[in-house]
Amino acid sequence: MNLRLARKQRARAAATVRADENRRLFGRNAAQKASDAAERSRLAKTLDGARRNDAPSEPTVE
């Protein structure tokens, strides 16, 4: 197989994958985006609520 054709085919496949990801991320309506943002916020609050306060925030090296 010609290397030039193989490179072009690989580039086309990568572009297709990138296009699919962009369609998934940016091809949504406002309600779906708001729903995702609310879900991320809820998960962040749950995680912060479960965080232990007795653990030091940064390990000390002596």
Rank of each mutant, 00 (worst) to 15 (best):
M1H: 05
N2Y: 01
N2M: 06
N2G: 07
N2V: 01
L3P: 03
L3C: 00
R4H: 07
L5K: 01
L5Q: 03
A6W: 03
A6Q: 04
R7Q: 01
R7H: 04
R7F: 02
Q9M: 07
Q9P: 02
A11E: 00
R12T: 01
A14R: 10
A15C: 07
A15G: 04
A15K: 07
T16N: 13
T16Y: 14
V17M: 07
V17I: 12
R18F: 12
R18V: 10
A19S: 11
A19W: 08
D20P: 08
D20Q: 14
E21P: 04
E21C: 12
E21W: 15
N22M: 15
N22H: 12
N22L: 15
R23E: 09
R23H: 14
R23S: 12
R24C: 12
L25F: 12
L25D: 05
L25G: 06
F26I: 05
G27R: 06
G27E: 02
R28C: 12
N29I: 04
N29Y: 02
N29C: 09
A30H: 09
Q32Y: 03
Q32F: 03
S35M: 12
S35Y: 13
S35C: 10
S35E: 13
S35P: 01
A37F: 05
A37H: 02
S41K: 14
L43I: 09
L43S: 05
A44E: 13
A44T: 11
K45P: 01
T46L: 15
T46Y: 08
T46W: 13
L47K: 15
A50K: 03
A50F: 08
A50P: 02
A50H: 06
A50C: 00
A50Y: 05
R51K: 09
R51T: 12
R52V: 08
N53H: 08
D54I: 13
D54F: 15
D54L: 12
A55Q: 12
A55G: 05
A55W: 12
S57Y: 10
S57D: 04
E58I: 10
E58L: 13
P59H: 07
P59M: 11
P59E: 04
T60V: 11
V61N: 01
V61R: 03
